[in-house]
Lab assay of single mutants.
Amino acid sequence: MEVRTIKVFTTVDNINLHTQVVDMSMTYGQQFGPTYLDGADVTKIKPHNSHEGKTFYVLPNDDTLRVEAFEYYHTTDPSFLGRYMSALNHTKKWKYPQVNGLTSIKWADNNCYLATALLTLQQIELKFNPPALQDAYYRARAGEAANFCALILAYCNKTVGELGDVRETMSYLFQHANLDSCKRVLNVVCKTCGQQQTTLKGVEAVMYMGTLSYEQFKKGVQIPCTCGKQATKYLVQQESPFVMMSAPPAQYELKHGTFTCASEYTGNYQCGHYKHITSKETLYCIDGALLTKSSEYKGPITDVFYKENSYTTTIK
Rank of each mutant, 00 (worst) to 15 (best):
Q216F: 01
Y311T: 11
A150L: 03
N178A: 11
G143C: 05
T226F: 08
Y172L: 12
Y84I: 04
F242D: 07
P300T: 12
G257C: 03
T75N: 12
Q123H: 08
N129T: 08
T312F: 11
A205M: 02
P241N: 07
E264S: 09
E168I: 15
C271K: 13
F217P: 00
E2A: 12
K106N: 08
G257A: 04
T159W: 08
T10A: 11
Y172P: 05
K7V: 08
N14R: 13
H176T: 01
E215M: 01
Y72R: 09
L212W: 04
E144H: 07
L153I: 06
Y172D: 07
T312V: 11
C182R: 05
L254Q: 00
L235S: 02
T116A: 07
V206G: 00
G161S: 04
L133S: 03
K7L: 13
S294M: 15
N309P: 09
Q31L: 13
I152Q: 02
C227Q: 02
K316G: 15
Q196W: 13
H74R: 09
R141G: 05
Q175E: 05
L102C: 05
C190Y: 01
T19P: 14
Y113E: 03
M209G: 11
F128W: 10
L291W: 15
G33I: 05
E253C: 08
L151I: 03
L65H: 08
A132I: 07
G194Y: 01
T198M: 12
Y306C: 00
N129V: 07
G143K: 01
E71Y: 05
L151V: 02
Q237Y: 14
K127D: 15
Q222E: 12
S171A: 13
E71V: 08
C261S: 06
P224H: 11
D77Q: 07
Q238K: 02
G143I: 01
T159R: 10
E296T: 13
T35W: 06
G33P: 00
C112Y: 01
R66A: 12
I315E: 15
K218D: 01
G29H: 08
A145K: 04
N100C: 15
L118P: 04
M244Q: 01
K95Y: 00
K218I: 04
G220Y: 04
V188E: 06
T27P: 15
T302N: 04
K127Y: 05
H51L: 02
A154G: 03
Y73F: 09
G101V: 07
L212S: 06
Q230D: 11
V304H: 05
K7S: 12
